[in-house]
Amino acid sequence: MELVATLVGPDATEAAASRVRSALSGAGLAVKGPNALGPEAFELPLLGDPETARAVAATELDGLAIDVCVQPAAGRRKRLLVADMDSTIINVECLDELADFAGLKAEISAITERAMRGELAFEGALRERVGMLKGLAASALQQAYDQRVRLNPGARTMVRTMAAHGARCALVSGGFTFFTSRVAAAAGFHLDRANTLIEADGALTGAVGEPILGKEAKLAALEQLAAEIEAPLSATLAVGDGANDLAMIQAAGLGVAYRAKPLVAAQAHAKVDHADLTALLYFQGYRADEFVVD
């Protein structure tokens, strides 16, 4: 099988790529020399078994700040991006930040962490946490957005570059529409989907709109959006960090775990622990001079 191994991260140098090439060759794989895609990004075209290539590359790069993606060379550039929001496209968990305004951050963050690790059902955990925010002034949402929410490094470049090259980009979150609408506009997504916080008389009621958008709804969104543009799932890219992202990550043509929980990182096609979100562009074979940068 024609494959490509992409190395991205602070320690990704030509020397490191050459070391991986030697290790892959030693394992019986036919490997060409490294091509530079940009600063701290190299790719190695090769022939062979992808699982063997992944295992060899991971062993050779152990201890280095390098993310690696091994995938079929054909169809690398994806036509659909579906991205999680909290702790993926942005730097925080919005619900936890709202909890801080209510003086409940420690309690609610603990539930969030368990849900993201897959220890709690997402839907029930969301209802419980939102219920704890009953009575919080609705104005806290804008405060949280203004004071706490920032795009993660590379997010805007990733989305804008894919969009400029014809990909459909969707922000699909188990969070809330108040935040996804603003984050989608800031990053350049074409559309956003999320849950709705119910308000009355200027305060949160402690209820969330039903049905709740969780793990299965994210997968359904990936499938529906791919069908709308008549793209096979092999032409899709999904990225996230928590257990409710796992189904869409596994179903996508390229599923990436970004700074993810162990459960997700272990089952994704690739993970990004060291580079910023432009790694997803390099994984698709984009060169740095193709990036859309403000």
Score class of each variant (00 low, 15 high):
E216V: 00
T236Q: 07
G103R: 07
L233N: 09
G285L: 08
E43R: 12
G154A: 09
L47R: 14
L191Y: 12
L47I: 10
V92M: 07
R19C: 05
D273G: 13
M85A: 05
E93C: 05
V56K: 02
G285Q: 05
T161W: 05
V293M: 12
I90H: 07
P262E: 13
A144E: 02
P45Q: 11
S234I: 00
L254V: 04
L126E: 04
D241C: 08
A17P: 06
T161V: 11
G166A: 13
L3E: 10
A99L: 09
T161I: 05
L98T: 05
P211N: 11
L191E: 15
E216N: 12
G9L: 09
C94N: 01
A125W: 02
A252T: 10
P34R: 05
T13S: 15
V130G: 06
E128R: 07
R127M: 12
L47G: 13
L222E: 02
R168A: 13
E60Q: 14
T157F: 03
L237K: 02
A220T: 05
L61T: 03
A57F: 01
Y286I: 09
E290I: 08
P39C: 06
A170K: 04
A57C: 10
L197P: 03
I108K: 06
F189E: 05
L237F: 06
L81P: 01
D11H: 13
A185H: 12
D62N: 14
E97Y: 05
L171R: 03
A140I: 04
L136M: 08
D86C: 10
D86F: 07
C94R: 00
A30E: 15
I108Y: 02
T236H: 03
L191C: 11
S18V: 08
R79F: 01
P50H: 07
G154F: 03
A266K: 12
Y145I: 04
D273W: 00
D96M: 03
P45C: 13
I198R: 11
A36D: 01
L222W: 01
A57T: 15
R54C: 10
G75T: 03
A110G: 12
I249W: 01
V272E: 04
G209C: 11
Q224S: 15
P10M: 12
M162K: 03
E40Q: 15
C94T: 14
F291P: 04
E216P: 00
A83S: 15
S87L: 06
V272L: 06
G240P: 05
A27C: 02
D245K: 05
M1E: 10
A288I: 02
E2R: 15
G174I: 02
Y286D: 08
G33I: 00
L197S: 08
A243E: 06
F101P: 00
F42Q: 08
A102G: 09
A221C: 13
G48P: 03
A65P: 00
